[in-house]
């Protein structure tokens, strides 16, 4: 039982921490009323997903993986390298994340010009007063 616990639960701490960070970001997106705080939560959520993917690519402590730059000598000495496919996926995801952030910030600035506040509850209040 204890061995099973160590092998299946504690040895995979990367995934647990990834889920923890994901929930922190999700909490910020839902519960915080400030729009920029929501975007910070979005950023944290995205990073948690990146952490999940990079953990998938990684090889555990024994045998230790190396960076995926392969040469002939490395293979002869019996080195193993980490899986480069998730790295490439995450590279694209990082580019998308900065573009998303820029668009969202432009929208936040526009909302501030329109309503004079970036608190979500006040914006909803003002919209209700306007009868939208």
């Amino acid at each position: 039982m204890l061995e099973w616990l160590i092998e299946e639960i504690f040895a995979k701490y990367n995934y647990w921490i990834s889920i923890t960070i994901m929930l922190i970001g999700f909490y910020a997106m839902i519960a915080k009323s400030n729009l920029i705080k929501k975007l910070i939560g979005l950023s944290i959520f995205q990073t948690a997903i990146f952490l999940f993917f990079i953990s998938l690519a990684d090889i555990g402590p024994i045998p230790r993986g190396t960076a995926p730059i392969v040469s002939e000598a490395m293979i002869h000495k019996g080195y193993v390298y980490v899986n480069p496919l998730p790295h490439v996926l995450i590279l694209t995801a990082i580019v998308v994340s900065v573009a998303t952030l820029a668009v969202a910030l432009a929208l936040v600035i526009r909302m501030y010009e329109e309503y004079g506040t970036i608190e979500e509850e006040e914006i909803i209040e003002k919209e209700r007063e306007l009868g939208v």
Partner: peptide
């Protein structure tokens, strides 16, 4: 975790 390219980006 040896993913240098992602770390750089």
């Amino acid at each position: 975790m040896h993913s240098v390219d992602v770390a750089f980006t």
